[in-house]
Design a protein around this nucleic acid. Structure first.
Lengths: 222, 222
DNA sequence: CGCTTCAGATAGTTACACTATCCACTTGAA
DNA sequence: TTCAAGTGGATAGTGTAACTATCTGAAGCG
């Protein structure tokens, strides 16, 4: 197929496809003439993956490129791919990490990891992100928010266990690697939205519903 | 205090503080002369909140403004504030939501909500975000990732229940409202980082550790 | 008195993610 | 066979976001 059809089938505008080609997110098609190229189903699939990362996962174009590059580079090493996908998705940090408060928060995270016997890369940026959140909460006097850090860790662990199990059930290795990436990125988007809905429900339940919702058709679901 | 000290105590550069003042994220100080103003602890606190939202929560400046505005507007209505904070944090959507596949995904989400008796705003953007993730996974043939959507919902519910309980334990209403916002934004950042760590652990455990990690000092924690 | 700092205003910068044109070819239906 | 529509590749332009820099005239302060 040529760009026009690729565009129609993926829903991505032609100029954007060209942009992704330039940026190296999408491999070039097979050239059939000086100004003609042929794209296959793998291009369509790659394009859908890119759009899932960018639109649903909120990943930047640069990070998406790193992810798809890692998909090629670590085609047989799920652990490396997971690390690459995670660090690509991890935002650039701004917080000040030199303060003693931050160091204490990081130590708390390391203790949590050690207490649970978690096997993680000690240099993983995720550790610092947890410390960032703890430090920010503490600086605003909201330490009680994360008093039960253990419960967060337990929930995370049980979700992760189920996801990894699902991924490993895939027989085809190439498809399995794609699932690693999708689980990392889409799983986060999905869970965070579900968490918001659960917040709404629990707030309404524990506070009571003081007044009718402000929208048209104001009924509460179920 | 004057800007210089506000800057030193918060770690935010003076030009950035001025920018936040211009953009209405930070209220102006009390004017003491034509070109002098006085800032208090509430300005410092507000500044720390803004930086927590932006740096740790990854919220845009525009969304941060909406959140702090909502903090003032809904000073006595936690449910409204929660809704405002959630929609401020929710990213703008790109995916195509007109396809029958997406409609089916949305129906699945609505069924899940109904089955659990969750009390949520039927028009909440979070519902659409869940449908987006489901649709993206389906378009790439990864439906098995979210076969156990129920488990995600259960985890989200138990986390949310604990957080809402923590927030309601705060006696001071103003401080409680700040906790609503912090719980929404920081809680997400924290959980998503913990989830990544849990993924590392579970992957290593279920796959086995094929080789030494690539970093210097390559030991695995604990 | 003189050096620093300040508030407020305006203008400039960098990064990002596209989007638009242009050109010299192909393609494919009439 | 013709010729509009489409194409690959290159280059340039757009709009937004989040700062960052500079300027001006007026305090603050030792």
């Amino acid at each position: 197929m040529r760009v026009g059809e690729l565009s129609k089938r993926s829903g991505v505008p032609i100029p954007t496809i060209k942009y992704y080609l330039r940026e190296g997110l999408l491999p070039a098609g097979a050239a059939t003439a000086a100004n003609q190229a042929d794209y296959g189903d793998e291009h369509l699939r790659r394009l859908l993956l890119i759009r899932a990362l960018i639109d649903v996962g909120g990943v930047s174009v640069a990070s998406a490129r790193e992810v798809v590059t890692a998909l090629g580079t670590y085609a047989d090493d799920p652990l490396e791919l997971l690390g690459a996908a995670q660090s690509a998705v991890t935002p650039r940090h701004r917080p000040d990490r030199e303060t003693p408060e931050w160091q204490a928060a990081k130590q708390r995270v390391l203790d949590l990891i050690a207490a649970r016997g978690w096997l993680v890369y000690p240099l993983s940026p995720s550790i610092d992100l947890v410390a960032d959140a703890l430090t920010a909460a503490a600086s605003l006097g909201a330490t009680e928010l994360f008093d039960n850090l253990g419960q967060y860790a337990d929930s995370a662990a049980s979700l992760a266990a189920a996801e990894v199990r699902t991924v490993l059930e895939r027989p085809d290795p190439a498809a399995r690697m794609e699932l690693v990436v999708l689980g990392t990125v889409l799983g986060e988007a999905l869970f965070s939205a579900l968490r918001q809905l659960a917040h709404q429900h629990e707030s309404a339940r524990q506070i009571g519903i003081p007044e009718a919702p402000p929208q048209k058709n104001p009924g509460i679901a179920q």
